[in-house]
């Protein structure tokens, strides 16, 4: 870095040290012991619905995907690397992100189908970490419909359980709780601002 800026670094660190000379003991708390406790899929379904996202509980995931895409009129749908073959087959016209699609191409698609890292029952949250079947972040951001499949054994109890399950990951993580929303105009809630306007969760039994 240029000289004046490393001077800024030295000065800020010196100011900090001078500012905290009165602190004699720092209470180091060791963080909570976090474990990834399983959560209740029924609660997840209820909490996701609270955000006005739709929840489909089914043991036929491919069938549910096909039905949801049809319901939303979504034909050209993005498919991340690693999407299970039967989910892929449920998409009328799957557009694979290999090689990566341009952002404008992604924005022009009707939707995206993904799995997830896990889900959080208490808060109705889907956690995405870019693992197999999830894709990079832009994939679940630009298309207008996000169909996300959660297996019952992926349901965790609460936010701390999710943080525990993620470990010290350095991959990008996105917590998704319902469709994007704003209450900026006279405090009236509107679903769907910049992210996908519709989030459909398929909860596999």
């Amino acid at each position: 870095m240029a000289q004046p800026l490393s001077a800024a670094r030295q000065e800020i660190l010196a100011r900090i040290r001078a500012a905290t000379t009165d602190v004699t003991s720092i209470s180091i708390h060791h963080g909570r012991k976090l474990t990834a406790r399983p959560g209740d899929p029924g609660l997840l379904a209820q909490r996701v619905a609270d955000y006005r996202a739709t929840v489909t509980r089914t043991d036929d995931v491919a069938g549910a995907i096909a039905a949801l895409l049809a319901e939303h009129g979504a034909r050209r749908v993005a498919a991340p690397p690693g999407l299970p073959a039967d989910w892929l087959a449920a998409i009328p016209e799957a557009v694979r992100d290999e090689p990566p699609l341009a952002h404008a191409e992604l924005a022009a698609l009707d939707g995206v189908v993904t799995g997830c890292a896990h889900a959080i029952a208490e808060t109705g949250t889907i956690t995405l970490d870019g693992g197999p079947g999830q894709g990079r972040r832009a994939l679940t951001l630009l298309p207008d419909l996000h169909v996300c499949v959660v297996r019952a054994d992926q349901v965790l109890a609460d936010v701390p359980d999710s943080i525990a399950a993620l470990g010290d990951t350095t991959r990008p993580v996105t917590f998704v709780s319902g469709p994007s929303a704003t209450s900026d105009i006279e405090l009236e809630r509107v679903e769907g601002v910049h992210g996908p306007r519709r989030l459909a969760v398929v909860l596999a039994a």
Binding site: Y51, P100, G130, R136, R137, P172, V173, F175, S177, A181
Partner: peptide, 21 residues
């Protein structure tokens, strides 16, 4: 903050990730 259990989107990133962002 907003009185929600969780806000719609929370993003975490660490430096740069090749092929993502």
């Amino acid at each position: 903050s907003t009185g929600e259990r969780m806000n719609p989107y929370t993003s975490l990133w660490t430096g740069v990730t090749p092929g993502d962002g």
